[in-house]
Design a binder for these strands. Sequence first.
DNA 1: CGCGGGACTACACACGTGTGTAGTATCTTG
DNA 2: CAAGATACTACACACGTGTGTAGTCCCGCG
Lengths: 226, 226
Amino acid sequence: MTIDPGGDRAPEDLTARARIRDAALRIFADRGIDQATIREIAKAAGVSSGLVRHHFGSKEALRDACDAYAVERMNQIRQQIFTEGRSRDQAFMGTVHPVAMLMQRYLARSFLDGSEAAAARFDDMVRLSEQWLTDHGIVPRDLRAYAAVFVVMQMGVFAMPEQVSRAMGADVRTPEGNARMLAAMVDIFAHPLLTPEEAAMSFEALDRFIARSPEGGARNEARPKE
Amino acid sequence: MTIDPGGDRAPEDLTARARIRDAALRIFADRGIDQATIREIAKAAGVSSGLVRHHFGSKEALRDACDAYAVERMNQIRQQIFTEGRSRDQAFMGTVHPVAMLMQRYLARSFLDGSEAAAARFDDMVRLSEQWLTDHGIVPRDLRAYAAVFVVMQMGVFAMPEQVSRAMGADVRTPEGNARMLAAMVDIFAHPLLTPEEAAMSFEALDRFIARSPEGGARNEARPKE
DNA sequence: CGCGGGACTACACACGTGTGTAGTATCTTG
DNA sequence: CAAGATACTACACACGTGTGTAGTCCCGCG
């Protein structure tokens, strides 16, 4: 099953440029950005490889276009869910949207590969997480590290869909499999996994390492790129 | 700072074969397996590229050797920590060991890239997680999905060290930065992030999707490859 | 000493890659 | 209609890759 990043439009109705971008987004998300080839994308879009270059200039520029489009689509979906008054469960329901699923996988790949745009996007997500945590009255020992780890944990789930699918016995790239995976995430975050005693012992041991470092103790220095 | 996968031995004391394997492990973990090149590994090991082939036959075989060595080293470390009677916090303290840090990053890359050995290793970790959860008296709604997601979440942290480091403002590839990151993980798992009401609403919404699928409801079918 | 085998290197090959270029079709617009 | 731009293709180039091959060095052993 292939997901159309454009939504409900039929592929033949799209311009070649849009078809290329959609194919790139999907293949980038599936194979990883470095592994994907221009020719493969062109073939999937039903055009020549030269046309990809004609429209986007380079692979890097094509990736930038995908980044921008992914962010735009995610914002659209967020907006749509929000204005539909589904704010109760927006955080998780948004991710079962087929297009959102694809975008999440694309973004995860983007984080893995690394780029300026990806870094900026990641920092956005960390900021959003910090806000969410603060709004929920959660006050971690180390807010920034907490939020950063929180984000990578969530994205890790979208970064290794094959492993999760095989272990679960259901394809997480389908809405149903994805929903089941998300339900497991909710379950994880709904209950504590460590007893206070276990956590205290781990903290004590880990703090010894952190304190040993000259920089490890500093926690609230200026954010890189605010 | 580069970590020596072999431990405390000086690089010049190792055989060329071991130096190649160590260099491969480190470069695979840093760049990703597909991105790493034989020539780069050879250069890092101080040998010719032909020697890599002479000793390992192919890149895939080199990777297999790294897989086997990573598992072996991880078991050694686990054993060591266990026999030292540090079982209280073994789960997290083991991962601050410099070699263990590297192996975790290697394994994460391995999961991302995908291979038979990686899949088997992942399934091992899922099984271990299921056991750990059961031993801790945690009974999730969907044990297999829960354990699978739990594993990818943890590995996701090791898969995107650059993103976490930048957001945290400290390199998680150092023992201190890693310890700080792990402390954040402990903090996340020590307290619930969702209220029972929030979790219930999310479950209700997600279950609608799961129930819609013919396969989504089945959860305890035979494990693939037990 | 002789010599055989493993460690090791230098070099070449085939291939896939992103990119460049020239040319053709198709659409737009005055 | 004319003509210029735009969409699009086919083909070639330079380069890095994993892999193959021939040859050299060196150590152990009869």
